[in-house]
Amino acid sequence: MSPSHHDTPLERWFHRRGWIRITIGTPYLWLIFFFLLPFIIVLAMSFATRTPTAPPFSFGGENPVLNFAHYQRLFSDDLYIRAYLTSVANAAFATFLCLLIGYPMALGLTRVSRSWRNVLLMLVILPFWTSFLLRVYAWMGLMGSNSWFNKLLTSIYNGIVPADWALRYIPMMNTNFAVILVTVYSYLPFMILPLYANLEKLDFSLNEAAMDLGSRPFRVFRDVTLPLSVPGIIAGSMLVFIPASGELIIPSLVGSSSRPMIGRVIADEFTSARSWPMASAVAIALLVLLVVPLMIYTYYDAKSYEKQREEA
């Protein structure tokens, strides 16, 4: 009676183990070929030597098989060190500002009524679904020296400062300030959403208990809400910091060309200088910078999955 008697050996294999192997194997092989392999190429390339051939690199020949020159240049040429530091500083500052703006917003979202909350959440997500490029572009329109926004800020500024400090316009475009501002603008949803997800799950009766025990609202926040939202803060901060430090579009459009960020350096080495090995070495350096935040993020991510599993 059991259906196995009608199964061919192939069907039996498929039902017992085959479907599992196919389900695991297909995405696995895909990612190994299209993600892991390119990454290994980058790693290997960083030890190659640039040659005027096509493709423009070689291992061995007249050159050393493993060429460490590019890593030496990373430390000797201050272009790289400065790019590295600018990236970290900009990303860290932007992350901090995102947290400063995003945290009260996320907390505010948990305190409004349910119907309002859905509308407001939608409004947070909406810019996230519109083109990233256009969000950067929107600020280019605002920051330009002739824009209404710049004129407004300039007149406010001129009204406050003494007359001889007055400016015709505030130089915003092509500055580090612009990079940070636009980074905050572009990545703010990445901060708000994980924070909101975390804060929303907090039990409000904890706050009530703290108030019942005599704490004033600010103390309740400091002693109860803030410590419990640490996982959300970390998740949000990593989601902002990691992409912001490797950002290419924002510094290219609104940043200063004299102080490039590391993403731009990688792109320039690759396309303008056509030095695959140097670009790869800088890329590896960027990854080293990101290893620690990545590990923190993965750790908290894994923990939150465990929790979800327990709840289910």
Partner: peptide, 21 residues
């Protein structure tokens, strides 16, 4: 690791890595 790394990998690196591939 392979299904989380691309989520957080800076796009520039993914870009040049894919191009070289």
């Amino acid at each position: 690791g392979l299904i989380t790394a691309p989520l957080v990998m800076p796009e520039v690196i993914t870009g040049i890595a894919s191009l070289m591939l």
